[in-house]
Design a binder for these strands. Sequence first.
DNA 1: GTCTATACCGAGATAGAC
DNA 2: GTCTATCTCGGTATAGAC
Lengths: 194, 194
Amino acid sequence: MKKGEETKQNILEHGLRLFSSKGYEETSLKDIATKVNIKTPSIYAYFSSKDELFEKIVEFVIDDYVKFIDDQASTIGPLSTKDQLYKLLGELNEYYYMNDRGVFLKRYGVFPPERFKELITQKNSMVENEIRKLLYRILDVESDDHQFIDKENIATAFICLLDGMLFYLMNYSFEEYERRLTSTWKVFWKGILK
Amino acid sequence: MKKGEETKQNILEHGLRLFSSKGYEETSLKDIATKVNIKTPSIYAYFSSKDELFEKIVEFVIDDYVKFIDDQASTIGPLSTKDQLYKLLGELNEYYYMNDRGVFLKRYGVFPPERFKELITQKNSMVENEIRKLLYRILDVESDDHQFIDKENIATAFICLLDGMLFYLMNYSFEEYERRLTSTWKVFWKGILK
DNA sequence: GTCTATACCGAGATAGAC
DNA sequence: GTCTATCTCGGTATAGAC
């Protein structure tokens, strides 16, 4: 990779990390520059403004998440319906926990800075759709022992569960999160059986 | 009410509203002063800094919510267990939807500015405890036809559901939220029965 | 491509008149 | 109790040398 290209990547990565943990306004270009080991004005060689940098990160993050969701489709294929659902829940949760992209997604998905509201809500509905599509695919397979309630219903409850678990992930230790995941999953699974 | 006292209340109220909708950093003291129809420096007659103003609002909001939860205890008394749970879920959700205090609570509960992190997480665990206590009280009554799974389990799932629904409340119309509440509730209720 | 120097602005905050 | 005037600081952004 060329030196310039490398710097650009570094700016994007550290920007992502800082925006995730501290928020848009609380992160200065100087903070980012320091992490990348350059001076603030050098950032302008790659991005025309702080806003533009942020938007580029938004786009990268959402596209990456959509890709991640699609990847799950192929990974969970051979499992039983129950295991597929549980695995999907765990994987999507851990995507949030394990990297800054997830935190970024949630932080700005729920509370976007005024200027980026439109861009973000638009992109966000893509994500929910992707998850719903995957859930329908899982539930459509009839080769299983179980009977389920209405699919749409399940998807809505599943997504709610996903969002709710996020709070646990963010506010508690990983162990506590796992305990709570088990509890919640039990209720969900019993709840969607006919 | 004395004039000074009134101004102070106005600052608190408009501060709350602006912090909820725009966030801490994006809200300037000038924004608040404008809404109150005073000039920025007048705020310092009541609060020694922006930080102090914010902290006062945090404390007010959390205390008010805890009070609200306690109020629910007396309101839902005569209903069946099922109706009590459903009503509680609806009431707690709508507290969020209907006033800025709820949005404030969530916004800073999940993503507090660095400086206030400690204050807020500490206060926040009080809230979860209050909800758990109330749930245990509801579930302890045995005069009902239903058998339930483990109480702790139910409480965890309930709180997860509460947090998840928040995303629906914030990102969709009230009608869509209600549709989704129905779906999610169905799954939850089936899930907690023995 | 990265730097130093600097312009510019808006924020939080203080002093002191009325 | 509220104002005008003003200070200070840190942020984004630009100019121009190397």
